[in-house]
Design a binder for these strands. Structure first.
Lengths: 213, 213
DNA sequence: CTAATATTGTGAAGATTTTCACAAGGCTGT
DNA sequence: ACAGCCTTGTGAAAATCTTCACAATATTAG
């Protein structure tokens, strides 16, 4: 692949959404799909769908549309889902628990290979097949296990001390659930999952309605 | 307030982030802050910070910066956080549990006034001060309780049937944790919290690094 | 084989968002 | 009161993203 152009955040999110739609279509047994239909199931336009896909190649057939299975394979490849990623969960609290037991990881391309917490009352517990380890072991274990991605599900207060270990271990990406902007060296990719921000965007939108009448 | 201009999604997200930063600064006892310092703590530029704020008014003093406490008050007002919002949680599973017990809601502007599930084995359980109710009671209870916002923490399969109740009740906003695009009438504002999408954006970014060398 | 129809891929136009750069203030020290 | 310094607020420029519109091309029907 190795496309050199810069792809926007929003385009990547849409690709992810397209993949979800294609998976639905596969399940429904549909063989081909037009950009028009894709746009109907997402919240974009047909032109946007075509433009997004054309950033990576010509996957469709004029007059016919896209082959559902083929496009799904290509999107998985584009999104880096044609391999497994080794993931460590840091934070064995409720969110961490919800994530691990939800289990969507395995079905997708992510293998949770280690779980950490700094709360000694949690260390040692068994979660799924894994023992919760003390965060102080992070660097060693992350290296042994080849951890590339960290899911950070800890409270804001714990972020600075935990991040020391994470930075030292040379992890490549972090999925951050803590409602704070992480300070990381430029090497590490960070994505935030931030409920507070979305809730506030919601109350903003509703307030605007009220105000603008 | 009642600004008529359209404010971009990304600008709103940044406002929410600025508010978080201001809350940190207040806690640290800092009285004023420059756009420069704000940009250092977020991931933007000073010009961006000033531009974002200027969409709503002139809140700073030239040569001095912004008054931390005052700006926080103004941002809360802009984001609609100067009132309480009545929220219903739909889905008494692990994510719902994590959300409710996390408790950040009350400290912010949201009151969880009802909890619903369609799983009869969960109905009747006590969560915090609330009894989990059957989703079939949604319309009645939502009206009685004046629910404006729904937090949807249910699996994808359950979305269609649950959404019938939610739509009927005339809720104004939905915070959606299910990894699917909700189909709603234009009246209802929807924000998504989507871990899968962020994880895939992460593996995309890491793959790009690998590919581009 | 030709005509009719469908749908992609993509330059160009249009819209939006971000960055630049600087005049206008406002504070501090003398 | 004045000089020197700092920082905002904001038009204008630059960059980015989305939409438009249509030529290119594949399929189907006759």
């Amino acid at each position: 692949m190795a496309i050199s152009r810069k792809i926007s955040e929003s385009a990547v999110r849409r690709l992810s959404l397209y993949l979800r739609i294609l998976e639905d279509l596969e399940r429904e047994g549909q063989k081909t799909v037009s950009s028009e239909e894709m746009s109907g199931r997402s919240a974009t336009t047909a032109a946007q769908v075509r433009k997004d896909l054309s950033l990576f190649g010509s996957f469709g057939k004029r007059g016919l549309g896209y082959d559902v299975a083929d496009l799904a394979v290509r999107l998985r490849k584009i999104l880096g889902l044609d391999r497994r990623w080794r993931v460590a969960l840091v934070g064995a609290g409720r969110i961490g628990s919800a994530l691990v037991e939800y289990g969507g990881f395995g079905e997708r391309s992510y293998d949770v290979v280690a779980i950490f917490d700094s709360d000694t009352s949690k260390v040692g517990a068994r979660w799924g097949g894994l023992r919760v380890r003390d965060i102080s072991e992070f660097v060693t274990v992350a290296n042994d296990e080849g951890v590339e991605i960290v899911i950070l599900a800890i409270p804001v207060e714990a972020v600075p001390s935990v991040m020391e270990h994470v930075e030292e271990a040379g992890v490549r990406g972090i999925l951050n659930f803590a409602p704070t902007k992480l300070k990381v060296s430029g090497e590490v990719a960070v994505k935030d999952v931030n409920m507070v921000m979305e809730l506030e965007a919601l109350s903003f939108a509703l307030s605007q309605e009220d105000g603008a009448g």
